[in-house]
């Protein structure tokens, strides 16, 4: 099942570094490569939704929380 990971990037951009998208991508690139997904900063900025498999979503969420030292509150 795919899940929209865009809200996590949006959240990260409100509190993180200016290049937080690239920092997150730098963290999860081994997972992206394994699942044959290419994400870039400009894609993240331009696309309204970014659907990814659950394992990629979890990796991005964990890495973002790790970089920002804050828990992400998922919308119910």
């Amino acid at each position: 099942m795919n899940k929209d990971v865009k809200p996590i990037f949006d959240w990260a951009n409100t509190i993180g570094d200016a290049n937080i998208n690239n920092r997150i991508l730098g963290k999860v690139i081994p997972v992206l490569i394994k699942t044959k997904i290419v994400l870039t900063d400009s894609m993240i900025q331009e696309q309204p939704t970014i659907m990814v498999p659950q394992n990629v979503y979890d990796a991005i969420k964990d890495s973002t929380e790790n970089l920002l030292a804050t828990q992400y509150q998922e919308e119910k």
Binding site: N22, G26, I29, P30, L32, I33, V38
Partner: peptide, 13 residues
């Protein structure tokens, strides 16, 4: 780790 994709991302960082 990630070929050209990895090198490009490294460059941006």
């Amino acid at each position: 780790v990630a070929g050209e994709y990895g090198e490009t991302l490294a460059g941006e960082l």
